[in-house]
């Protein structure tokens, strides 16, 4: 197992803040919009350096999506920012008509996704957003795994002409990817090559997959770990290649089992290469208040659950 160490921990939303700050300096077309959550989205630097390219929309997310569409069709690159809950389900129809169907180059960048939002509880813990955005035609869906990857993704999507849903979160997490990485949309990153099982993980669960890989190594199980940062378009080639080698799969995501990464992988495998799959995710329930670690433990979204699923899926080979 390849060793991953970290010297620092940061939240992925700060990676977004750093990325958009850099874009503020390098790309004059980038405009940031926010619905009264500037501090949460780490927009301070961008706003300080580019006050004329920041638009405060107030607590009015539907309007923010429409305004973004208007800016985009006028040739700008709007980054519409809010919490994941308010940037997906609350504005699904606005994204569908004014962004995806209209092909406007809007980047919907959302923080506080999933259970790790923590104490605010289920009203804010969106666990269905990947499913909604995956189902939407012409939408690109990205869920990076740490600070550096989120920063790189934030910068990379400015060079892609089309709607993007970029999802990140609140908790402080180890930084284990390279700070000079080049982010390629739709190209999975092999975290560790292995032969006994494929673990396809996204977002905060990638670090948990690495921890699981270390535990499995002690049991003599050689896990292949792949970071699927782009849920759509899915890197079919990387997934099929890995599954053909290991012949069993575990998926891991901070999302409902319905409609997320696991479903996407199962759809691909069942059509091309029927393979035993175990899925880590929230099983048809809402979240609740608690610390991120408590919640991830209670809902089974951690290294321990991944290890258990790996044992189970290997037995099904």
């Amino acid at each position: 197992m390849k060793k991953y160490t970290f010297t620092d921990k940061k939240d992925t939303r700060s990676g977004f803040g750093a990325g958009i700050a850099e874009l503020g300096r390098s790309n004059p077309k980038v405009i940031a919009l926010c619905a009264d959550l500037v501090a949460s989205l780490k927009l301070d630097t961008f706003i300080k350096e580019n006050p004329e390219r920041f638009i405060q929309v107030g607590i009015a997310e539907a309007n923010m999506i429409g305004v973004s569409a208007g800016l985009a069709l006028s040739g700008y690159i709007p980054y519409a920012t809010t919490f994941a809950n308010f940037g997906s389900g609350r504005v699904y129809d606005q994204i569908r008509q004014s962004v995806a169907y209209s092909g406007t180059n809007v980047k919907i960048c959302v923080s506080h996704a999933g259970l790790t939002l923590g104490e605010d509880g289920a009203t804010h813990q969106i666990l269905e957003d990947l499913a909604m955005m995956r189902a939407m035609p012409e939408m690109t869906v990205i869920n990076p795994c740490d600070y550096n990857q989120t920063k790189a993704a934030t910068i990379a999507i400015a060079d892609y002409n089309g709607p993007v849903y970029l999802r990140f979160g609140r908790p402080v997490m180890p930084i284990f990817t390279a700070d000079d990485q080049k982010f390629e949309i739709g190209k999975a990153w092999t975290v560790n090559e292995g032969k006994d099982v494929s673990i396809f993980a996204t977002g905060h669960l990638v670090w948990e997959a690495i921890l699981a890989g270390e535990i499995l190594e002690q049991e003599g199980i050689d896990a292949e770990i792949i970071n699927i940062h782009t849920i759509k378009p899915l890197d079919n080639e990387a997934i099929l290649k890995s599954a053909s080698k290991t012949r069993c799969v575990v998926t891991a995501e901070e999302h409902q089992l319905n409609g997320g990464l696991g479903d996407a992988v199962c759809q691909l495998l069942s059509r091309n290469m029927p393979t035993p799959v175990e899925m880590i995710g929230v099983n048809n329930s809402f979240g609740e208040s608690g610390t991120p670690a408590q919640l991830m433990e209670k809902y089974g979204l951690n290294a321990k659950s991944i290890v258990e699923s790996v044992r189970k899926v290997i037995a099904r080979k």
Partner: peptide, 20 residues
């Protein structure tokens, strides 16, 4: 310039275009 039909969205889009 933009799809419309699901009501209530056009003024927002126009605001974005006016801002631009």
């Amino acid at each position: 310039r933009v799809a419309s039909g699901s009501l209530g969205q056009g003024l927002s889009v126009a605001c974005g275009a006016a801002y631009a």
